[in-house]
Design a protein around this nucleic acid. Structure first.
Lengths: 187, 187
DNA sequence: CCCGGCATGTAAACAGTTACATGATTGC
DNA sequence: GCAATCATGTAACTGTTTACATGCCGGG
């Protein structure tokens, strides 16, 4: 499917960048649904170069250090737009190790279940707080043809996703606690 | 991380199964957060056998066909429980091609955006309907130590996830339609 | 007898992570 | 001078998918 290819082309379509810049991009907004590290990016850029979908020119920073600033070509833009317009079927549900653990949680002490759930909860609450702070830079829906439009939609989606995860975790904790209380009453 | 290893051990801890049975399991409840196909399962079973975490005995169905029914060993159960009790940090956000497309959606016609969103919407609505029908077999929270307990929690989580995805898709469609209406008013 | 599902495997290709490897620049 | 970050790459390994390959069983 070569998704990384299109993620890179999409980013370069916004503005020219180095491999290093691309790898940083994946830790910002786009990191909420796609990422890659530099060891995957550099070989992919080489391949895109072979396919003539990008070109680069070298910039010197400081005295010697050469930066390869990649730019998308017309051919690259065409391929990217063709991919972007494709209507593809829903993807299979994403893998999630924590949910796998919970699937088997009948094998855990109630206390352990609660501890594991609460640890996830604090982490997701931190993540949500971060996403909400990111959202503050938008006062409303950005212009429909600006790069911010996509950023805004997916950021909103990420916030909704985190809120739901938090809600689920709290529900699970409540269920587990009801069992603990129930046991205490019996004693 | 060998997650598949623990997914298999967890399933075999419920009851003895063949490789074929395991691969079918991944299309049921557990498929909502983990899956693997048979070409990954058979080699993994061989490895678990080498590690003495499982054993098998051969059952004959019909006249000749040999089925290898795998059973978890005491060593296997110990390793599984050790893994299950581990408290691990939150995983990175899962990859999602559709959200990647939407991230770059400023490069699409408004009509195309709506079409793509609506296609996702119908698929997620179907998925939700299916999950809700699955949920009907539960009248309340199953016993805390039964296999159904985990099934119930993660099924509930999957339902919440689908509902949120649907809500997000509808929101995106509404935003895109507001633009279309706006343009029409101008004409 | 034929087809769909049962049943088990291997091989090749692709995707992704972790580790190895090197060196420059900038700010303190 | 030193540490953090900028900058680019390769190698080895792990995980996953797709395709190849084979054969039995049960019902219509």
């Amino acid at each position: 499917m070569r998704v990384l290819k299109y993620a890179i082309l999409g980013l370069l379509n916004r503005k020219p960048m180095t491999g290093y810049d691309l790898s940083k991009e994946f830790s910002y907004q786009i990191g909420n649904f796609w990422s890659a590290n530099h060891s995957q990016i550099y070989p992919e850029l080489k391949r895109l170069l072979d396919e003539k979908l990008v070109v680069y020119n070298i910039e010197i920073s400081g005295d010697v250090l050469e930066k390869k600033v990649y730019t998308i070509t017309e051919k690259g833009r065409k391929e990217f737009l063709k991919w972007l317009n494709k209507d593809e079927p829903m993807e299979p549900t994403p893998k999630n190790v924590f949910r796998l653990r919970m699937y088997f949680s009948n094998n855990l002490d109630i206390e352990t279940r609660i501890r594991l759930l609460e640890h996830q909860l604090v982490q997701h609450e931190e993540k949500l707080a971060f996403l909400l702070s990111e959202m503050q830079r938008y006062s409303g829906v950005p212009p429909f043809d600006s790069d911010d439009f996509g950023d805004y939609l997916v950021l909103d989606g990420a916030i909704m996703r985190e809120k739901t995860t938090i809600e689920w975790l709290k529900k699970c904790i409540k269920i587990c606690q009801s069992k603990t209380n129930c046991d205490e009453e019996r004693n």
